[in-house]
C-alpha cells in the first residue's frame, strides 16, 4: 500500500473539480472558485514532490525549479480553460517559455532554445495566423461551451493521479530508495550531458549514433511539406473575376 495514496486521491479530486469549474460551460461558471481549487490541487502535488530543505545550500535551485514548474503548469491550465482561443494561444506560449526554462535547468541548452524558436516562434505564430483567418469576431458560442466538461476533467485528473502515484511508487521502492543519493551535478555528468561544449557534443551524437533518425526526420518533413501544400491547394478560393485555382 502506497502511503501517498490519500493525498494523491485528494489532489486528484480537487484537480477534477477545479478543472470542471474552470472549463467554459456556457452561462454557469464559477471560475474563481475553480481557480482556487485547481491551485490547491497543484499545491498538494508540489508538496508531494518537494524536497525543499532550507538548511541545504541548494535552496536557490529548488526555488528556481518550483517557479518554472508553477509557471508552466498554471499557464497550461489557463490555456485549456480560457474561452477566447487567442488568449489560449498566448497562455500556451507562456507555458512553452516555462518548459524551455525547465529544459535549461536540466542542462539541455539546445532544446531550451529550440523549443522557443520552433514552438513559440514558428508553430504558435502559425496557429495565431489561422486563428486570425478563421475566427469570427468576438467569442463564438462553441468556444463558450465544452462537451462533457465533467467527464473530461475527471478522466484527465485520474490519469494524472495514476501517473503521480506510480511515479511516487518507483521512488519509494526500497531498491531505488536505498541507493546512495547522488548529489546534484554528478561528476560523470560533466563528461556527457553537462559537458562544457554542450551543442558540440549533441551534434556529434546526432550525426553519428542517431544519423538514421535524422534522415527519417528529414524525409518526414519533406512528406509533410508536400502533403500540406497538396491539402491547402484544394481549398476553393472565393471567386475574384475568374481567377480560380484547382
Amino acid at each position: 500500500m502506497n502511503e501517498a495514496l490519500p493525498s494523491v486521491a485528494v489532489a486528484t479530486v480537487l484537480l477534477a473539480l477545479g478543472l470542471w469549474m474552470m472549463l467554459p460551460r456556457g452561462t454557469t461558471t464559477w471560475r474563481g472558485v475553480g481557480a482556487l481549487t485547481t491551485l490547491a490541487a497543484l499545491c498538494i502535488f508540489a508538496w508531494l514532490s518537494s524536497h525543499l530543505d532550507p538548511s541545504e545550500e541548494a535552496w536557490l535551485g529548488d526555488a528556481v525549479f518550483f517557479t518554472l514548474a508553477g509557471v508552466t503548469v498554471i499557464a497550461a491550465v489557463c490555456t485549456v480553460t480560457f474561452s477566447n482561443p487567442g488568449y489560449s494561444a498566448i497562455w500556451f506560449g507562456l507555458s512553452l517559455l516555462g518548459t524551455a526554462g525547465l529544459f535549461l535547468f536540466q542542462g539541455a541548452q539546445f532544446l531550451g532554445v529550440a523549443t522557443i524558436v520552433v514552438y513559440a516562434g514558428a508553430i504558435l505564430v502559425t496557429f495565431l495566423f489561422v486563428l486570425m483567418l478563421a475566427q469570427p469576431k468576438g467569442e463564438s458560442a462553441y468556444d463558450r461551451l465544452s462537451w462533457g466538461a465533467g467527464l473530461a476533467a475527471l478522466s484527465g485528473a485520474v490519469v494524472v493521479g495514476i501517473l503521480v502515484l506510480s511515479i511516487l511508487g518507483i521512488f519509494q521502492n526500497p531498491d531505488v530508495a536505498s541507493r546512495p543519493r547522488a548529489p546534484f551535478e554528478l561528476p560523470e555528468l560533466k563528461t556527457e550531458i553537462l559537458a562544457d561544449q554542450h551543442v558540440a557534443h549533441l551534434g556529434a551524437q546526432l550525426f553519428s549514433k542517431y544519423l538514421v533518425a535524422v534522415e527519417v526526420a528529414g524525409t518526414l518533413l519533406l512528406v509533410a511539406l508536400v502533403g500540406a501544400v497538396a491539402i491547402a491547394e484544394r481549398i476553393k478560393k472565393p471567386d475574384r473575376g475568374g481567377q480560380s485555382h484547382g
Binding site: 503548469v73 497550461a76 490519469v159 494524472v160 503521480v164
Partner: peptide, 9 residues
C-alpha cells in the same frame, strides 16, 4: 504528468 493530463482534458 501534469502537463500531459491537462492537455488531455
Amino acid at each position: 504528468a501534469l502537463l500531459f493530463g491537462i492537455g488531455l482534458v
